[in-house]
Structures are given as structure tokens and as C-alpha cells.
Write a protein that binds this DNA or RNA. Structure first.
Lengths: 211, 211
DNA sequence: TAGAAATTAGCGGTAAACCACTATTTAATT
DNA sequence: AATTAAATAGTGGTTTACCGCTAATTTCTA
């Protein structure tokens, strides 16, 4: 019995690319292709695949949202995250949510197939580049384990305005807040995203599609 | 006679995706797939395609570098840029270099095919989202036409270190420069990239793959 | 309904970024 | 040989970001 694989990605090039790569693999059958979060959730309700290749950036819902929702109701679905970002804290976030693997879009044919097979068998898969990063990170953070990487509504708003090149004062005016409050949110962002300054904020935000 | 199409992209998913989408189009034949700039330049020397689908981020060379080099020696090759970034000044840069089109990776099957056909016939193609942006930009910049968007060696170095979250002082130490010099480079960057602060620098740099 | 998390606002202070200039030396180009 | 661009360094100043605190109120959630 072939592995039933669903793909959730809004770019036709990517979906077609995966299908094309798997065409030679007789033991993998692409059963569904979803291009947004809404139809994905609906589809999963009706028909659960063995493995779900989940993009991080669907137009209507984020990767973490979707993974959480799906795993809550259908924990037997093995989610393999498909992402072009290697930002560590996002990788950790998805794995903590219960995803079984994290595959970079730059991967080659062999790696992709291997990832799907591994995950279907109940194993975990990480793109090689991430493996090393994760290990180094564990050594760095032996003690402080429970870092909160979920941004609040306000923090996301502030972050978006930072990316749009606004100063704290401008952000305060736009959101009808005190300058102090915006400064506080900004510092929370620095801590949560584990970066040193504005450059880090923007970098992580863009690379992870946080906003 | 079918359109001879070459693809330059280092991600197997993307290259396969394009091929897969074009499989039904009998009048387009994918003659070559290149995964880095070096083999691309070699390949073009031996055999020129009608249309070249050129990714912005090959591992060894940048999109602009490659486009300039190819168009200088083989101006009859029609280059269709394939990019995931809609940052305007990069679009303008490629078009000024002589590329015949700019196609976003999020495009659907029909658009992709249409872009290739248009370019092959000698026309120009822009992803719809860019069309509108480009027009607005022209109205904004009726006067100041000749903006220099080419970063110097030093500017690129400084920009990379900014993205890596270093302060001006740290950058000065690393490059054995005066703090003043680094500040000057930083302000040149702000002007050249037409942004207001560090956030803008990082945003444009990441979205365009400048560094 | 008690506790936790989020949102708000403040104080005092340091470090860094941003801006407009001038100016010299070196490298590239015509 | 002359011009231009790049890289370097400076003065003097303003604005913004960053940091560590405290603390009240609201909202969420167990």
C-alpha cells in the first residue's frame, strides 16, 4: 500500500515540483493538493493522508496555526514542514507543536523522498543543515529551556510597523499608545526572538514570515 | 519549431515544477537545466536557448551579474527573471540590464506559459502585481531618474555586518576602519536603497538578496 | 474565581543611530 | 592628464534605540 501524501502549498511551481519528483516513486501517492488553509482543514476532515507536506506560508493561515489545529484533531497525520527559512526558533516551534519533520525547499530529490519515508514510518526528519544548528543551540541553552516564542497581537502589530520603518514615536501615534508602551513591546520582541537590535528583528520577522 | 527554454535555478523543486507545468505545452521544450552560475555560463556558450528562465539567487553568482554577462555576449537570448521578491528597485535593475521579463515564483501555470510565450515573441512580460507598482513608481519619480542602486564592495560588507546585528563600532573593529567611516557607509546605504533606517536596510537587503 | 498573561505607562539612564557637512587619498575610467 | 568614483576620516550635533526597573489594569484561562 503506497504512502498517501497531501501537499499544502500555494505556489503551483512548488506543488508541481514535488509531484514531479515523486512521479518515479511508486510507493508514494499524492492524494491531495491544497493551496490555502481553509480547504486544507476541510480536506483533512474528510480524508486524512499518512503524511502532510505543509508550507509555512499559506495565504489565509500560518503554518503554526494549521499544524496546531490539524494535530489536535488528527494526531495520526504526520506533518512534514516545508519551508524556505532555516531560522532556528521557527524550526523549534513547529517541532514542539508535534510536527515530525522540517524540510528545506532547497532540498534535492533524494532528501525529499527520504524525508517522506522516514516520517511515514514514524521517525523524525530534519534537513541536514538544521540538525547541526539544533545541536549547537541545545548546548547554548542547557538551562533556559522554556522560552516563549509566541508573539502577542500587540507585539505583532508593533513588529509590522518596525518593519515598515516607523520609529517608536510614530508607532505610538498610530496605535494611540504611550511611547513607553511601544518601547516595552519592542524590548519584549528583542527578548522573545533572541536578537540584539532592530536588524535582528527585521531579519527574523522576514525570514520566518511572522508578520 | 518549439521554443527552446533553459532553466537556471538551484532548487530541484522549482526546476521540476516548471518542467512539470510545461509538460503539457508541446510548443515549449526545456533544453537545459542549470543549478549554478558557472555551468550556466558554460552552457550558454555552447548552446543558446530562445528564452532563459533565470533565478535571482544561484549559489555562486547573483542574478544581475549573470544577466549582464549573458546579455553582453548573447543579446539574442531573452532572459525572463524568476524571483520570489517583488522589491521594486530590483525589478527595475533587471529590466535596465536588458531582461525581457520578471516573473514571480508564486505565478500560476497559465501566467508562466504566457510569460514565456510573450518573451519569446520579442515582447516584455511583468507579473501583474509588479505592473501596477512600476507605474506608481514612475509617477512618484518623474524627476529623479538616475538613482544609483549599485552598492560598492565596502557598502556590501558593511550591510552584511549590519544584518548580522553588529553595531557600527563592532563593524569598524572588524574591518579595521574608523567609526566615522562606517557611519558614512551606512548613510550611503540609506540613501542608495531609499530607506529610512536600519529596518529598511535589512528588509531591502533580505528581500533582494543583495548580500 | 484565582492565577497567569497581556497591555498599558512610567522613571532614569546609556549607547547607538542618524544627519549634514568638509576633506584627503586612492583607484578606476575616459 | 583629467575627471570621476570609492574609501577613508573628521566635527558637531540631534534623535532614536536600548536597558532595567516598577506597577496598575485588563483579559484570558485553568
Amino acid at each position: 500500500m503506497p504512502i498517501k501524501l497531501a501537499i499544502a502549498d500555494d505556489h503551483p511551481i512548488v506543488a508541481n515540483g514535488i509531484c514531479s519528483i515523486l512521479r518515479d516513486a511508486a510507493h508514494v501517492e499524492v492524494t491531495d493538493i491544497y493551496t490555502n488553509g481553509n480547504t486544507l482543514l476541510k480536506g483533512i476532515r474528510e480524508r486524512q493522508p499518512d503524511v502532510l507536506l505543509l508550507d509555512m506560508h499559506l495565504p489565509d493561515m500560518s503554518g503554526p496555526e494549521l499544524a496546531a489545529s490539524i494535530l489536535k484533531n488528527y494526531p495520526q497525520v504526520r506533518i512534514l514542514v516545508l519551508s524556505s527559512s532555516d531560522v532556528l526558533f521557527l524550526v523549534k516551534k513547529m517541532l514542539k507543536l508535534g510536527c515530525m519533520g522540517y524540510l528545506l525547499k532547497e532540498s534535492d530529490d533524494v532528501t525529499i523522498l527520504q524525508a517522506i519515508e522516514t516520517v511515514q514510518k514514524g521517525g523524525q526528519f530534519l534537513s541536514p543543515a538544521l540538525n547541526q544548528q539544533l545541536i549547537e543551540d541545545m548546548f547554548r541553552n542547557k538551562k533556559s529551556e522554556k522560552k516563549n516564542t509566541t508573539l502577542t497581537r500587540r507585539e505583532k502589530e508593533v513588529l509590522q510597523l518596525i518593519i515598515d520603518e516607523h520609529t517608536n514615536q510614530e508607532i505610538a501615534d498610530k496605535l494611540f499608545l504611550s511611547l513607553h508602551t511601544v518601547e516595552n513591546h519592542r524590548i519584549s520582541l528583542l527578548h522573545k526572538l533572541e536578537v540584539k537590535n532592530t536588524a535582528g528583528l527585521v531579519k527574523v520577522a522576514l525570514q520566518t514570515g511572522l508578520v
